[in-house]
Nucleic acid binder design. Structure first.
Length: 117
DNA sequence: TTCATGACGAGGT
DNA sequence: AACCTCGCCATGA
């Protein structure tokens, strides 16, 4: 299984105006314990072209902000699509978090299977 | 091959 | 709330 390709696909499935956590991405990729690798691959651009600004930690903090061109880039991108970011660089996951439906998860699993990823 | 390093996360104090 | 400690695991030196 190509974990990084999966991360790319999952990230591109995050709806505009929503945020997902590293652990959530890892889970959808079929590797629930690889949250750190999600951060690693986004940092190194190994997931391809993805909306990396929509990925935050489980508490909603923009822990990856420092890895963007400008430290405030992630915040700008999120607010530009309607996601409020508090002064302490945090997103309210209850309000803006991406809620996955079971069929959504199954569809991703099926796709990975079909495409041999 | 061993070792340190994280865009992590859950639990405990 | 603010810390701290562990467990986690793919990299890269």
């Amino acid at each position: 299984m190509d974990f990084y390709k999966r991360v790319g696909i999952v990230c591109n499935a995050i709806p505009e105006g929503r945020a997902a956590s590293y652990g959530q991405i890892a889970l959808l990729c079929g590797k629930p314990r690889n949250a750190r690798q999600v951060g690693y691959c986004l940092n190194r651009g190994r997931a391809g072209k993805v909306p990396a600004h929509r990925v935050v930690n489980s508490q909603g903090y923009l822990t990856g902000a420092g890895s963007f061109e400008h430290p405030d880039m992630q915040r700008m991108l999120l607010e530009a699509e309607g996601v409020q970011v508090s002064p302490d660089m945090r997103v309210d996951m209850g309000q803006f978090g991406w809620k996955n439906t079971l069929e959504e998860a199954l569809a991703l699993r099926a796709r990975f299977e079909r495409e041999g990823i």
